[in-house]
Amino acid sequence: MVETKNSEPLIRVEGLRKTYTDDGVPVEALRGIDLIIYPGEFTAIVGPSGSGKTTFLNIISGLDRPTEGKIWIKGRLLEEMSDKELSDFRRDNLGFIFQAYNLIPVLTVEENVEYIMLLQRIPREERKRRVRQILKEVGLEGFEKRRPPQLSGGQQQRVAVARAMVSNPSLILADEPTANLDSETGGGLLDMMRELNKKTGMTFIFSTHDENVMRRARRLIILKDGRVAEDKQIG
């Protein structure tokens, strides 16, 4: 499955700005970004620390509100949604993979993966079937009853990938997903995500400064000082 520019954009960003106040001093994290991302893309947002990668991901996923600008995801304008609507929108359309894995430590591997489907009120049998299937795909069969602290970093990130993908969201946002992994584990994880991207057509957007990620991405958006410095298709 390859992204297609003939289809409707998955994400449209216009004039996006974000200003934080740090100890009373305004800090411009994003200084006017215009972007379109199509379904099925495997895109890396790259740039040095402080270039605005995480802020960009947070805003396009509705985790944070912009100071200025508009974002449409699947044709819906985020600024028009209430907190509750945003929660429901994220639940049904987005999957997240975080640098620090952010698994719920009191839940087992299968419960962590199952969590979003519970929010979606998917029937128990269907949930169990999907959990079994996705854990098999990410190579964590037999780890169902373990809790996150009992897993290695790579295994935890695989659980996070399974959790992000199990509900078949349209978009997966990964914030520095390989930052805490060695290059071999990180590379394996990325290959797995690329395979899933090809197989399912899910859109992946990564923020990274990892060469491993950049090499595998199909599109590179380079941010510098809160602006898009370069946007290029690869391969």
């Binding site: 907190d83 509750k84 929660s87 975080f98 719920i104």
Partner: peptide
């Protein structure tokens, strides 16, 4: 606090 942020990011409603 971080965990509540994660739960909200995953789509957990504030009332939950």
């Amino acid at each position: 606090t971080r965990e509540y942020g994660v739960l909200k990011a995953l789509g957990t409603r504030p009332q939950h």
